[in-house]
Design a protein around this nucleic acid. Structure first.
Lengths: 145, 145
DNA sequence: CCTAAAGATGTATTATAGATACATATTTGT
DNA sequence: ACAAATATGTATCTATAATACATCTTTAGG
């Protein structure tokens, strides 16, 4: 059980933008700092823009910045949007061939556990994630303006 | 984010044994009823035996049966043993190359969420999973002795 | 005590999903 | 109009889960 790198990169993107709220870095710059694929990060960024967390500015001096205050970006909401939460095959109603799915008592239990998981994430915002901002700036090798 | 089929099969095995406590079915028989691979189920069964949930009886009239009462088989404990719980790459201390893992505020949040997830599973036993025993027997096409 | 039935173990192959790379189109500001 | 940046689509690579196969071990019954 693990989160996809898609979710991972989404969080890294948000963290990068959060620690320097006045900058408008490009996707290229962010990918360089994390040493990850620009193309992959691009797709992640697009979804973040469409989801309304990030604002993308095109053209010459374009770049990205957060579309809302840190405290209004909820971790639970973000990960809900980037992950597939079909914990087991039988959660996916289309491709379910388990013989006992009709009477299986495991499904509601897993659902409740997942709710508890997401409810925990819901209690945190991006502000909590970047609480150690000075250290993050240092680790990312950013110049403070 | 999803559980491996390994966990899925482990639960199916336990359910099969739970609904007919007086029978000692073989791995072959169980695999047939679920229409899943005998070899795969075999490994799952071995782990379940080693973990002390299932008792395996060898020889001519061998088979499997639960090693403990239903209520003493905890779902959280079972899944803890069958799953890899490294939610993200940076949880795995050996292969962690994320630049900001030292100051990242996401890690403790994910850990807390995972704890909430497992704590929920800990509240249920195999007895809860097979609460609808008559229906399960019917779905599995089992003859009641 | 020998053998057949069943479990146990290890290795190899296949399938799938995720990650990455590459190519190209589109938008936008100067 | 052009350059800088975003956006999209396709193809390839790779890691891991799933499966298959082969072989060894244990055990009950004759």
């Amino acid at each position: 059980m693990h989160l996809t790198r898609h979710s991972d990169y989404t969080m890294r993107l948000l963290i990068y933008l959060a620690v320097q709220p006045d900058a408008t870095p490009t996707i290229q710059e962010i990918a360089d700092h994390y040493r990850i694929s620009r193309n992959h990060l691009m797709k992640v960024a697009n979804r973040a823009v469409q989801a309304g967390y990030v604002e993308g500015m095109r053209g010459r001096a374009g770049g990205l910045r957060l579309a809302r205050p840190l405290k209004q970006i909820n971790i639970g909401q973000v990960l809900r949007a980037t992950e597939n939460w079909d914990l087991v095959e039988c959660f996916d109603t289309e491709s379910n061939h388990c013989a006992i799915s009709g009477g299986c008592g495991l499904q509601p239990i897993l659902r409740r556990a997942l709710e508890a998981y997401l409810a925990t994430l819901d209690r945190y915002s991006l502000a909590d994630v970047v609480a150690r901002r000075p250290l993050l700036i240092q680790l990312l090798d950013l110049k403070t303006a």
